[in-house]
Nucleic acid binder design. Structure first.
Length: 490
RNA sequence: CGGGGCGUAGCGCAGCCUGGCUAGCGCGCUUGCUUGGGGUGCAAGAGGUCGUGGGUUCAAAUCCCGCCGUCCCGACCA
């Protein structure tokens, strides 16, 4: 069933696609650029949804749902917004067997339609802050698509908040940046750099955009989440005003923030290897696959009984453990497949821990255990196996993050000389931290000449870009320098 | 929209350059036996309008032209 995986050294992009397809996470649909998420892939999204939803609610946001269709006029109310999104919108012009009086945009994001309701719901400062989140699908007609990373239709979570003051809105945008940073690192085991987008890279309609940027195994960057301070841009366009304590009519200050199914792609490109998917335990639904070795017909029932008892013991032990999830254990009793076949299969789909249990083990009172991110097998006493599983699941979650962080740090370089930069962005590649004079021209020049963009401006404890000394990477000027991460990206 | 590749069995491909015999191979599938601690082995089977339309020719999977589909690279990507 499963073909051999294309070696990564040939073509990372092809390797990535193979992992997605062969681990049966997703397929392309008949509609170009649209993705069918298979059960294997969707269960990962369910874990993300469940965990992140809890974190979002903890900030006070409430879930709601807004329509898929947005009247075209709504989108046009905010000038920068429509300019940024119009080229990639899908628009319904004909429905109910006739041409529509007003065209309907299939939402590329929901700022406008949500603001149309905010304007009705918000009357006084007592209604603030208003914090709404929705889990939904959006459509963006990109020219080029990639499974999970950039699909025509994708699933995401988008939060939209209204606040009485600019300070509160800014605080909210920063708070969500933290939520995303913690989530990416704790759950996806994907280290990220939190920072600010440059003017040219920020969200269309935002005052400023915070983001988290991750490094993939080919050393390219991936934007993994964004949190925008929208200031009053949309509120002014939609007349979202409130009566403040001082009796004055004021415009609300807003934020929006979101992450998408792209996180799944990022997680794959961070951890997986040539044998297939590597799933951080917190994203797995099956954490342990027990493969009973049924070679000996006389011992068959004994082996099966031991395997089932072990599964039960693991689940029970995990209930009393510190693990923040319930451990899923599978006993693979299918005897139309050989053990070797099963080993490959569970590696392909990324089951974190595999246990072999056969007649030989029963005699010795042990099992053979291996972790998906190990190259070795270990013999473990049967009695101690459940605790060992719990320990290794926790350790694997930690190890994956640390390994990815070490990889990123090893491939992040300080750089000053532009000629040197042009050489090294090609080979070996990576993140390049350099001084930037904050001019659009310098940013554009670098992009034009090297295909590298400013992924983000790392921020200090004051959330502002970190001042730099020396000279701008591109123009060698020495005025108003900040540190910027330059990299090629997805 | 540009540049390139590919379309032959469910999947992956060879054959094409240099036209010709019954269109092949691997995996998968079916049946039986065997095997089972890293994708067991053996045997017998099923499965193909060679993407599509036209042209050249005694003869086209193979040569020529159009079209369609698909993938990669680029442009695009809050």
């Amino acid at each position: 069933m499963a073909e051999k995986i294309t070696p990564r050294d040939k073509d990372f992009s092809q390797w990535y696609q193979d992992v997605v397809l062969q681990a049966r996470l997703a397929d392309y649909s008949p509609v170009k650029g649209c993705m069918v998420i298979r059960p294997n892939g969707y269960s990962i999204w369910e874990q993300i949804h469940q965990d992140l939803d809890r974190r979002i609610k903890a900030t006070g946001a409430k879930n709601a749902y807004f329509p898929l269709f947005i009247p075209e006029s709504f989108l046009k109310k905010e000038a920068e917004h429509v300019e940024g999104f119009a080229p990639q919108c899908a628009v319904v012009t004909y429905a109910g067997a006739k041409d529509l009086e007003e065209k309907l945009v299939v939402r590329p994001t929901s700022e406008t339609i949500i603001n149309s309701m905010f304007a009705k719901w918000i009357q006084s400062y007592r209604d603030l802050p208003m914090m709404i989140n929705q889990w939904a699908n959006v459509v963006r007609w990109e020219m080029r698509t990639r499974l999970f990373l950039r699909t025509t239709e994708f699933l995401w979570q988008e939060g939209h908040t209204c606040h009485a003051t600019a300070e509160e809105a800014e605080e909210e945008a920063r708070k969500m940046l933290h939520v995303y940073t913690d989530f990416a690192e704790e759950v996806l085991a994907m280290p990220v750099v939190p920072g600010l987008k440059s003017e040219s890279e920020k969200f269309a309609g935002a005052l400023r955009t915070y983001c988290i940027e991750a490094m993939m195994q080919d050393k390219k960057a991936l934007q993994a989440g964004t949190s925008h301070n929208l200031s009053t841009n949309f509120a002014q366009a939609f007349d979202t005003v409130f009566l403040d304590k001082d009796g004055q009519q004021k415009v609300v200050h807003q934020t929006s923030w979101g992450v998408s199914t792209r996180l799944i792609g990022g997680m794959i490109m961070t951890h997986s290897d040539d044998r297939g998917l590597v799933l951080p335990p917190r994203l797995a639904s099956t954490h342990v696959a027990i493969v009973p070795i049924l070679s000996n017909a006389n011992k068959r029932n004994e082996v099966l009984a031991a395997a089932r008892a072990l599964a039960k013991a693991i689940q029970e032990t995990s209930l009393h453990s510190q693990l923040p999830y319930q451990v899923g254990v599978l006993v693979d009793e299918d005897d139309t497949k050989q053990p070797g076949w099963k080993f490959h299969e569970y590696e392909l789909i990324g089951v974190p821990i595999r246990i072999e249990l056969g007649p030989r083990d029963l005699e010795n009172g042990q099992v053979v255990m291996t972790r998906r991110d190990w190259a070795r097998k270990e013999s473990v006493a049967l009695a101690g196996a459940p605790q060992k599983v719990v320990n290794e699941l926790a350790a694997m979650q930690k190890d994956l993050l640390e390994r990815a962080r070490a990889f990123r740090d090893q491939n992040t370089f300080e750089i000053e000389d532009y000629a040197d930069f042009r050489k090294r962005i090609e080979e070996p590649g990576g993140f390049f931290v350099a001084a930037w004079c904050q001019s659009k021209d310098c940013e554009a020049k670098v992009k034009e000449e090297t295909k590298a963009t400013i992924r983000c401006l790392p921020i200090g404890t004051d959330y502002r870009p970190i001042p730099a000394v020396g000279r701008c990477l591109a123009c060698e000027g020495s005025g108003s320098l900040v540190r910027a991460i330059f990299a090629r990206s997805y």
